[in-house]
Design a protein around this nucleic acid. Structure first.
Lengths: 143, 143
DNA sequence: CAATAAAAATATGTATACATACCATATGGG
DNA sequence: CCCATATGGTATGTATACATATTTTTATTG
């Protein structure tokens, strides 16, 4: 079997295409958010006061990676961290005004770029791909 | 739209699942190859004397990343680099005996793990997924 | 209630992933 | 032949991605 035909290789290429589309559209919109940063902002906006472990499990990352992502979001002034009163080990995370604005700006861009992520597929093929991918991810996260 | 349902997010999760399956199977087989390292070894085996840019374009990476990958393969004693006589800027890359052995050992493992990468899908669904993914990647690399 | 296990962050180390800049070399045109 | 340009590789910087270890704090259990 050729490497090019292997599933893992194809998925990596899809991810590559996806992140490039994301970066390109973000840049054109004058926003510097990466896919992870956007996902984290969205998760925090949906669950204000969530802790870092919560963010990690919401978007399926490990704690260590999320720590770095949140560091950078904090440096950009998009979020604030505070020690939880309920559990002093935990850091509660919330959007700042700037973070809310950035997310509000990013949302339509991200929604619009979805259609560019699977170039060459018809609408029904895209739907089929989405259904299959969802099935795999759902199945995998149930274990 | 929820982040979880976005194409990019799903693709990232698929890639995550894929790399985890790869790492797990490699480790169980006592091999320490990453997906990129395997792909690079395979490309070099198929094109002995290929230069680094050649490897990069074979497996769709940038020069900088491949440089690091090849550094590590060299450190492991799997490949050797030599200055090309045709073009003294270029480094020709070849497998060592150890590299050939490692690749030979890895191949059946990688072939076998393919079936674990899309858990929850039937064989026909896997084939459908593969066809759609191939279509996207092919379409995208034609530009 | 003290000992201990578990959990939240962080730190550390390794490996992608890629943009940009830089150096050495090659190549094409004048 | 000279020069502008392009190309191969490396260096640098940023951002994931994750395993493992460590610290602080919490929860559990004998």
């Amino acid at each position: 079997m050729k490497t090019h035909q292997m599933v893992g290789h194809l998925i990596r290429r899809l991810n590559q295409i996806s992140t490039q589309v994301f970066a390109k559209n973000m840049q054109e919109a004058g926003l510097g958010l990466t896919p992870v940063q956007f996902a984290a902002l969205d998760a925090i906006a949906t669950h204000p006061g969530i802790d870092q472990v919560g963010v990690a499990s919401e978007i399926a990352y490990d704690r260590a990676t999320i720590g770095g992502v949140i560091d950078r979001l904090e440096q950009k002034g998009y979020i604030v961290r505070s020690i939880s009163e309920r559990d002093r080990r935990a850091r509660e995370v919330r959007l700042t005004k700037r973070g809310q604005d950035a997310l509000k700006e990013a949302f339509p861009v991200v929604t619009a770029l979805q259609s560019q992520i699977l170039p060459g597929l018809s609408d029904s093929e895209k739907a089929e791909f989405l259904a299959l991918a969802t099935k795999v991810v759902t199945h995998s996260s149930k274990e």
